[in-house]
């Protein structure tokens, strides 16, 4: 029975991925991508990797979904620029030109083939006895947490996690670079909708509480900084959409501080550990639990701030562009 579910999930994921690639309209592609993300999350649950499943559902379907929808809206609202005929613009924007897809398809095929080969080799070479699982389990008491995934992410391989924080910050810098640094201007007043406002006000504390729960629960089960950060980032995005852009309401130094505090604290901690004669991120076992909790909290704040800022910046940018187009017409 359970193998049936696994097979259905596997077929569904591959089918949705193919549909997503070959769907004729961008709208369909986006929604198929959501469905694909959810199928993938379910597959991760079936594989027993609940941490990955939560992150997949939250980042791929949640955060990327918001960005995709925002981009779609810009496509659909973009007024015709030079063409008088709306049909031409519509077909050129919302459908893909099959002729121009030959090279991407070729590259995709080659990449996919290569990836399949690598995956096959990886499956072939799975080490006996589960690789490093036993080593990680053996050192678990020293890591300061009870959940092996958190121990690996925040203690044994903290270097990777630290660099991931940097990658997210780089992503934010990239969106700034594309749009120029005209950060967090107050948006034009959106139509105040009492229902939307009440729902956002209701969801804000709930999301915050649930994020904090995931953050703390990461010590002993699936959860942790990234999952919590997406929920907190969702608060920021909701508030932004509801006409309360967080970053233009708090002072600028506070925004910058919350963006960099995760990366910065990690760095300073690593520096002091190095100065004390240990290796980078080798926490003293007695304080490991507390240190990990502090790092996770600060990292979650930073990631949430970065996600909110990326969305706010892109949303803002697009709004300004479409306003400019409208005013020139």
């Amino acid at each position: 029975m359970s193998i049936m579910i696994d097979i259905i999930l596997a077929v569904l994921a591959i089918y949705l991925a193919l549909q997503c690639l070959f769907a004729p309209r961008l709208t369909q592609t986006v929604f198929l991508f959501f469905a694909f993300g959810l199928a993938l999350a379910l597959a991760w649950v079936r594989l027993g990797a609940v941490d990955v499943a939560i992150t997949e559902a939250a980042i791929a379907s949640g955060f990327l979904g918001v960005l995709f929808l925002d981009a779609l809206r810009d496509f659909s609202l973009a007024p015709p620029l030079k063409w008088d005929n709306l049909e031409v613009v519509h077909s050129s924007l919302a459908t893909k030109n099959p002729k121009s897809l030959f090279l991407p398809r070729l590259a995709l095929m080659l990449g996919l083939g290569l990836f399949l080969l690598i995956a096959l080799e990886a499956v072939w070479k799975i080490p006996e006895g589960g690789g490093l699982t036993a080593a990680a389990e053996a050192l678990l008491p020293e890591s300061g947490v009870e959940h092996p995934v958190t121990a690996v992410l925040l203690n044994f391989r903290a270097y990777d996690t630290w660099l991931e924080l940097g990658v997210i910050l780089l992503g934010l810098l990239a969106t700034f670079a594309v749009g120029g640094i005209k950060i967090y201007r107050k948006p034009p007043v959106v139509a105040d909708d009492i229902l939307l406002r009440q729902v956002i006000l209701f969801f804000t504390p709930v999301l915050f509480l649930f994020g904090a729960f995931l953050l703390y629960f990461g010590k002993s089960g699936p959860g942790g900084a990234f999952q919590a950060a997406v929920l907190w980032g969702a608060i920021g995005i909701l508030l932004h959409l509801g006409g309360r852009p967080v970053f233009s309401m708090i002072p600028r130094w506070l925004g910058q501080l919350s963006l960099t505090v995760g990366l910065g604290f990690f760095l300073i901690l690593g520096f002091f550990l190095l100065a004390g004669g240990a290796t980078l991120f080798e926490y003293p076992p007695a304080y490991a639990g507390v240190l990990i909790l502090i790092i996770e909290t600060l990292a979650a704040i930073s990631i949430a701030a970065a996600l909110t800022a990326i969305f706010a910046n892109l949303n803002q940018m697009n709004k300004e562009e479409s306003n400019q187009i409208e005013s020139t017409n």
Partner: peptide, 15 residues
């Protein structure tokens, strides 16, 4: 929560 979220998004899309 699903009830709240889906009815709100339904309302927003319809509006």
């Amino acid at each position: 929560f699903t009830l709240l979220a889906s009815s709100t998004s339904c309302y927003l899309i319809a509006r």
